[in-house]
């Protein structure tokens, strides 16, 4: 599994893990993120059960198990958090932050040790070491209980499935050509995002944030002016259309 550093200032760091060359081709490629501050780390959308081994090996290159104090699951999908039962064995004192509505559903993945911390619908903030991360509501994009993570200091918005693209395994971590990227994300957004109303609400709320990197859970990350290009494109897009092309 490849890893890149997205941000580093003092002991505040962001890493992105993905593009695993050993992944079974039937499994969709996912981006996993880890935020570190001092002696605390949180893994954002830790991934599916099939990627667990590679993820555990990768995160241990940068942190220790004792320092991973929390997991975050933007929603309940298997590619987001089906590894929960295995993390549960490694991180007995950690907490899982996820939309409150998913608690009893996520427990099906195995959660004997990890403590569930439900995020209220309106969002909340989370203290990681000396910094604070915000859980930004993104309900119905695409899941009915759904959050993004915003880091004001690093100016990174981890956007979950928003901005996701179905790309090649060896695609670069960052989008290089926005126009060429559109076909890779258009179908995904039209089909997976159920309604325009929550989409417009979300766009209005994130336009108020200072974002340098928009980091989705699949495909390339958007940096600099491409963040605005993505928001403009998403605003124009009609979603909730079940056409399989």
């Amino acid at each position: 599994m490849k890893a890149i550093s997205l941000y580093q200032k003092g002991n505040h760091k962001w890493y992105c893990f993905g593009r695993d060359p050993d992944r079974d081709e039937k499994i969709i490629d996912t981006n996993q993120y880890m935020v570190m501050n001092g002696e605390q780390s949180i893994i954002l959308d830790p991934g599916g059960i099939e990627l667990f081994s590679q993820m555990l090996t990768s995160v241990l290159r940068y942190t220790t198990l004792d320092e991973i104090t929390a997991l975050f699951a933007s929603h309940q999908d298997p590619d987001i958090i089906s590894s929960l039962g295995l993390w549960d064995q490694c991180l007995p004192k950690a907490k899982l932050y996820s939309p409150w509505i998913w608690e009893s559903f996520l427990a099906h993945f195995g959660m004997s040790n990890i403590k569930f911390e439900g995020i209220p619908d309106e969002g909340s903030s989370f203290q990681l070491g000396n910094t604070s991360l915000q859980f930004i509501p993104a309900h119905y994009l695409h899941s009915s209980g759904n959050f993004n993570v915003y880091d004001k200091e690093a100016k990174i918005l981890m956007s979950g499935d928003i901005g996701a693209a179905l790309d090649k395994d060896d695609a670069p971590f960052f989008v290089e050509d926005f126009e060429a990227h559109i076909p890779k994300m258009e179908f995904f957004h039209r089909r997976w995002m159920p309604s325009n109303k929550p989409k417009d609400d979300w766009i209005a709320s994130v336009r108020k944030l200072d974002i340098e990197i928009l980091a989705p859970q699949h495909g390339g990350l958007f940096k600099g002016e491409m963040v605005g290009q993505f928001l403009d494109w998403f605003e124009r897009l009609d979603v909730g259309i079940a056409q399989n092309k």
Partner: peptide, 12 residues
């Protein structure tokens, strides 16, 4: 569980 944790530590 101990095995996968230990071996991941070795790799790191």
């Amino acid at each position: 569980a101990n095995t996968f944790i230990s071996v991941a530590h070795v790799a790191s």
